[in-house]
Amino acid sequence: MSSDVRAAARPARRGPDGPRPASGARGPARPGGPSLGARLRRVPLLVWVFLLLPLAVELFWVFWPAANSFSLSLTRWDGISPAEPVGLQNFTDLAEDPIFRTALTNNALWVLGFGVLSVVGGLALAVALNKPGRGVGFYRSAIYLPMVVSMAVTGLFWRVMYQPGGPVNAGLEAVGLGSLQRQWLADPDVALAAILVAAVWRQVGYIMVLYLAGLKGCDATLEEAAAVDGASAWQRFWHIVMPQLRGVNTVVFAVTVIDSLRTFDIVWAMTRGGPYNTTQLLSTYMFQQAFTSGNLGYASAIAVVIFVLAIGFIITYLARQARAEEQS
């Protein structure tokens, strides 16, 4: 191990710049310290291997394929004969494609429905279950239990629930709403909403965990002071607690949109985009085009659209992480 040799030499070399750590530059050297060359020399070879190996794995399996998708989106390719460049043809075709438009609309509805329902539900539950008390631990566990069930299994669970003679219809009958009974997943009008309910069932727990952590970081004395001044519970929530949750809100917002654009498993498990493509999302349509129909170029174009829609939120999330990084 050459690194040991280098380390043995280090204490001696450290001698001259001994005062530096004491002057506040704790941990790795900050820019503005020694020159780039000096800093590079101080990083042992083993550490370069430690960094470059994982980086190479990610470059190979993530960044290189992602770059490939962009070039593939400009081709017509069936995976067997060579790809044939077609310029922006795929994208103009997409604009005319009624199924793509349905998928796009559905995805917009999905972001809204999934976001609003899981955030309102998760936030309300977090506020209700914030203070410890009898049964609170049990309630919390019950709410986030669905999170450990995979999206695919969630889909199957709810397929059972939605069967014509299944619990959902029987439950409606039992509470006197028998007229609402229907074939939930076979009815083009309600199939997407039915899937949404299943997805929200699984997501609420996650959002609740995020908000519970946010609430723990809130300053309780501010709320008490407002209560003494006569602010109602609702006013305290909106004017004292919510502003303090701004950071969590940004994360929740970005995570929800990124997750919504990725949603695939649950739709695939429940309807595969049917009936008559009414539950098609961008991801399921992309997958179908790629691996069922074999239109790899066209599918890549859909993937590029998903990327373009997601990138703004990815940057929002990254910017927040970068800022948090600087503060600590």
Partner: peptide
């Protein structure tokens, strides 16, 4: 723990890779 030049950029780029929608990787990965 080491003064690797541009380490903050490397770190955020690595995180960004995980945030990408998997759909953009599927066809090339296959």
């Amino acid at each position: 723990r080491f003064a690797i030049p541009g380490r903050k950029t490397i770190l955020l780029a690595m995180l960004a890779g995980n945030l990408l929608p998997p759909q953009i990787l599927l066809v090339p990965v296959a």
